[in-house]
Amino acid sequence: MNMSRGQFFRKREFTVLGLIVVLAIIFSLTTERFLSVSNLTNLLVQLAGTAISAIGMTMVIITGGIDVSVGSILGMSSVVAGKLLMANFPVVVILGAAIATGLLFGFFNGSLVAYGKIPPIIVTLGMLNIIRSLLFQLLGGRWISGVPPAIRVIGLGKWLGIPISMWIALILILFFTYFLNSRPLGRAIYAVGNNIEAARVSGVNLTRTILFVYALTGMLVGFAGLIYVARTGIVQTNTGTGFELEVIAAVVLGGTSILGGKGTIVGSLLGAFLVGIIKNGMVLLNVPALSEGLVIGALILISVVIDVVRARGERI
């Protein structure tokens, strides 16, 4: 943890932070609403779900894996939460059910990867489709809307001016950063990603470590699904489609190596912020929503190319 100043400036987190600051300055100078309380609140609430999911995704990618099923899992836990909400179950039950739904699918993903020895991209690609079909079946082609207000405090409530969902995200990020840096299982996650053979020989329980990261990702995404319902009050059949790409973009922008072994949760949070701030600023600038993808895509490339130039051709 004791790195010199030079090291910090060479880090990916610095590039991303710099981009965020530059964009924030541009948006506050060019629009009146960017710095308004309502806008910043809105920005943070929208970010919370992505940031929470990115915690798990960061760990999965550090082990050298990937989870493209998170969008479907988010949709599924939203459906479960939404249905229970409409049936007026207590909030604690709904919270438990949303997380359990995510955990169930995450555990299933993890088992297939860890015990079935099937490549993660195949497992989660398959599950992406399977879960989406189950979700359609459960919803029966209808929407859930008009969710009772009891739950909406998670989505819209605030404490000390910061949305509650963002507080939860920050606490989770702090905890899991500590976990990843200082707990044996956390270190094992890096070890698996760096050199799986070496990790095995030095006594790391590979199956348990791999199972853990996918199950945890499922749980966190399940919780993000609840936040989604609480925030929007609507669940549709296509809820969460494309969410996986947003989370992966955040993690990759944050400097986690897709080859495994390298990355931080704080980096992913910054990545999520970068994507969120771009989306937000473009809406304020009245840039047609159509070009949003253009800008996000270009930024992913620019930030990576900056790194490539710095590393002088080293593969990232």
């Binding site: 897709i258 895509g297 490539v308």
Partner: peptide
Amino acid sequence: ILPLIVTLASLYIYKSLALI
């Protein structure tokens, strides 16, 4: 640059261009 990153970025870019 790794293919996953390149094509993730171009997925966004080409899709956006198609809309425009």
